[in-house]
């Protein structure tokens, strides 16, 4: 079953003093996310990621289109009990403690009292806030608030979780923990839809990604498919610090590390390099085709979009 089905969702704001000038924030968006997937929604700042998430959460109303969650209409109240949401740079009632906040959200989500107590304990442990559960949120750092935000999003054990920039404000350890948590959610069979502009996070976590720019979908697919373009280059790594003259003569890009040498050569030069390494009795460590990184794919897509826009004008 599809977890999320976005059917031509579109948003145009009316701006200006008389609110007559249309400003498109999201062009008709069609997207499908399978159950159990971690889906990355990528785009630069101002691309329309947050608008899309707000539309999906019913915080802003679409100019056209609709969506379905877990096979039901997105406006169905029962669907909301099965979705969790972490907004971008979340801010919570700072007069509450972490425990009180989770209690409040648990009540609003309809989690039964008995189950709620147990679940709050579990979540506080999971997001690493158990020791500070009695501290008012006004004393929390940005990273701690982000953890509370993640906690409230998964508190009611939703099947579908939406995260808007979940790594924002976190230190490297915090980011790693969030990655692990998202991985764990996937293991539990949940669907995670998250927006980010940090491509390494998307590359490490996502099954599939969509790229959005200026409110328009620019790319969609599995990470392996998007990064599988072999650019006709091969990366060769061997042990040692010396560069055989025959390889040097090929004019390859060369990087010497502590006790390894790495070169990037054309595919048709790989036999010559291997022969040279054999002759010099150097130990080959790896030989791998160079794949396009998600970042390269992303930048190329955006550049293409800019060029198309410039030509149209």
């Amino acid at each position: 079953m599809l977890a999320i089905e976005i059917l031509g969702l579109e948003k145009t704001y009316k701006v200006g003093f008389w609110r007559k000038r249309p400003k498109p924030a999201l062009r008709p968006l069609h997207l499908q996310v399978e159950e159990g997937e971690i889906f990355g929604f990528l785009g630069p700042n101002g691309a329309g990621k947050t608008t899309t998430l707000k539309l999906l959460m019913g915080l802003v109303f679409p100019s056209a289109g609709s969506a379905r969650f877990l096979g039901k209409a997105w406006t169905d109240p029962t669907v909301k009990a099965q979705t969790g949401f972490l907004p971008e740079q979340p801010y919570f009632y700072d007069y509450l403690t972490a425990h009180e906040l989770l209690e409040y959200y648990g009540q609003l989500s309809g989690v039964p009292a008995k189950q709620r107590k147990q679940r709050i304990e579990q979540i506080l442990q999971q997001v690493g806030l158990h020791d500070v559960q009695g501290v008012q949120l006004r004393k929390f750092s940005k990273g701690m608030l982000q953890r509370v935000g993640i906690g409230q999003a998964i508190l009611h054990d939703p099947k579908l979780v939406f995260f808007d920039e979940p790594m924002s404000g976190l230190d490297p350890i915090g980011r790693r923990e969030v990655r692990d948590l998202m991985d764990q959610l996937k293991q539990e069979g949940k669907t995670v839809f998250f927006s980010t502009h940090i491509l390494s996070d998307a590359e490490a976590l996502c099954d599939r990604v969509a790229i959005i720019h200026k409110g328009e979908l620019r790319g969609l697919g599995a990470i392996e498919d998007l990064t599988s373009t072999v650019r006709g280059k091969v990366e060769v790594i061997w042990q040692g610090t010396q560069m055989p003259p025959s390889i040097k003569a090929l004019g390859a890009e060369c990087h010497v590390a502590a006790d390894t040498v790495r070169v990037i050569i054309d595919e048709n030069q790989q036999d010559a390099v291997i022969d040279a390494l054999r002759r010099e009795r150097l130990r080959l460590i790896s030989l791998t085709p160079v794949r396009t990184s998600l970042e390269t794919y992303f930048v190329e897509k955006l550049r293409h979009a800019e060029t198309t826009a410039a030509t149209t004008v």
Partner: peptide
């Protein structure tokens, strides 16, 4: 933006 996490619930 405290409203976002309230209205995204039932």
């Amino acid at each position: 933006r405290t409203l976002y996490t309230v209205l995204s619930r039932p």
